[in-house]
């Protein structure tokens, strides 16, 4: 039987501006899939963009792949070749005419499998 674990890295958390999820150890896993549930968006034209990052040590981070936009209620993508650590960095920003209130309340899941 393969091992698996779904980590809830952010739960019902309101993100605004720049953010990064807490470092998560994933060396045991051969597969990794992200799910971002957006529970609520506030502000006009609010957009959430994220980049998957990897690290040799949980302290120093670089991009694994290109930035992507998280649209809709549930977005998902796979990460591969990630080594021992994973996190998401990203931004939640409003459109050109938006005020400072742009925010997104999200659940961020990392589904890992050996």
């Amino acid at each position: 039987m393969r091992e698996s674990f779904t980590a809830v890295l952010e739960r019902n958390r309101t993100l605004a501006g720049e953010f990064a999820t807490e470092p998560y150890e994933a060396a045991w896993a051969a597969e990794a899939r992200w799910f971002v549930r957006t529970l609520e968006r506030t502000g006009t034209g609010t957009r959430m963009r994220v980049t998957t990052q990897v690290s040799p040590d949980g302290l120093h981070w670089c991009d694994l792949d290109a930035e992507r936009e998280v649209a809709g209620d549930l977005a998902s993508w796979e990460s591969s070749g990630f080594g021992g650590w994973l996190r998401l960095k990203g931004t939640v920003e409003g459109g050109p005419d938006a005020g400072a209130e742009a925010a997104a309340k999200v659940m961020i899941y990392l589904a890992l499998k050996s």
Binding site: E3, Y24, G58
Partner: peptide, 22 residues
């Protein structure tokens, strides 16, 4: 989940760690 107590919302998922350091 808005009804969860503020001090019990964010106890963090456990990790299967290889005790990996810089």
């Amino acid at each position: 989940l808005d009804t969860v107590d503020d001090h019990m919302r964010d106890f963090r998922p456990p990790q299967l760690s290889s005790c990996n350091f810089f």
